[in-house]
Amino acid sequence: MNLSRPYKTNVNKITLFREPSTIEKTKISCSRDIEAFSRQMYGNTISILEDFYIVCLNNSNIIEDFVHISRGGITGTLVDIRILAKIALESLSVGVILVHNHPSGTLIPSQADKNLTQKVKKALGYFDIKILDHLILTENSYFSFADENIL
C-alpha cells in the first residue's frame, strides 16, 4: 500500500430536508391531543401491521416533525435507537413522543415496549431531549405511558 498518494473517494453530504405533509402543526397539551394527531398519521392501517413513529416537538410543545421509524408484522416491529436519535437530533427537538400501534387490540404495554422506552429515554437524555410520552394505539383506544406514570 502506497501512502504517499492521497486517498480519493467521494463522501456523503448529509442535509436536513423536510417534506411538507397535509397534517397541520398541533400544540400538544395532553395524551388526547397526541392520540388525535397520531390517528391522522396511521389512517386505516392501525389494525393491520405494527408501525412505530417519533413525533418531534419544539419548546412550546408544537409538533414540528413526525417520522415513520419502522413497520413490522402483526405482533411486533423493530426500532433502531440510533436512527430514532438521529431524527430527534436533526429536527432540533426539545421533546419527543413515541407512538406505535398494537394491531391485536391489546392496550397493555409489553416488557419490550417498556424496555425500549427506557433505552430511548436514556439515549436522548444525553442531549437534553425529553420523552414526553409513549402512546400505544389500538383501533378504538390508546394507552399513554405519561398518564400511567411509567416514563
Rank of each mutant, 00 (worst) to 15 (best):
I97D: 04
S47Y: 10
G76A: 03
V99N: 08
E50M: 02
L92T: 11
L116S: 03
T75M: 11
K121M: 11
L135Y: 05
G43E: 06
N58S: 06
D51Q: 15
N140D: 14
G105I: 04
I63C: 02
E50W: 01
K119A: 08
V79E: 01
I54C: 07
K121T: 15
I97Y: 03
I74C: 04
I62D: 10
R71Y: 07
V55C: 08
L84Q: 05
Y53E: 04
E64A: 10
G95I: 04
S141T: 08
I48P: 01
I131P: 05
G76W: 00
L49P: 00
A85T: 13
V94M: 12
F127K: 11
L84S: 05
L57C: 12
V94D: 15
L137I: 08
D51S: 15
G43D: 01
G95K: 15
L78S: 15
H134E: 02
A85H: 01
L78T: 15
L137Q: 09
N61A: 10
P103G: 04
R39P: 01
H134P: 01
G76E: 06
I136S: 01
S38N: 09
D80Y: 14
S141L: 01
L124W: 02
H102W: 05
T45Y: 11
D51V: 11
Y53K: 06
N59C: 00
R82Q: 14
G95V: 03
H102F: 07
Q111N: 15
L137V: 08
D80I: 12
I108W: 02
E139P: 01
T138L: 04
I129V: 11
P103F: 09
T138E: 05
S60Q: 13
E64D: 13
L89E: 07
N140V: 13
D80N: 15
T117G: 10
D133N: 14
V96L: 04
N101G: 06
L124P: 03
I97K: 02
S38A: 15
L84W: 03
Q40V: 04
L57P: 09
L124H: 06
K119N: 11
S60Y: 12
L107R: 12
Q118K: 14
V96I: 15
V94G: 13
S38R: 05
K119Y: 13
K122C: 07
V96T: 11
K114T: 07
I83L: 14
T117A: 13
G105W: 08
S38H: 05
I87C: 09
A112L: 10
H100W: 02
I136P: 02
E64Y: 08
K119V: 01
L84A: 06
Y42A: 02
L89K: 12
H68M: 08
L137A: 10
Y126E: 14
N44P: 09
S38E: 11
N115F: 08
F127C: 08
A85W: 00
V96K: 02
E139S: 13
S70Q: 05
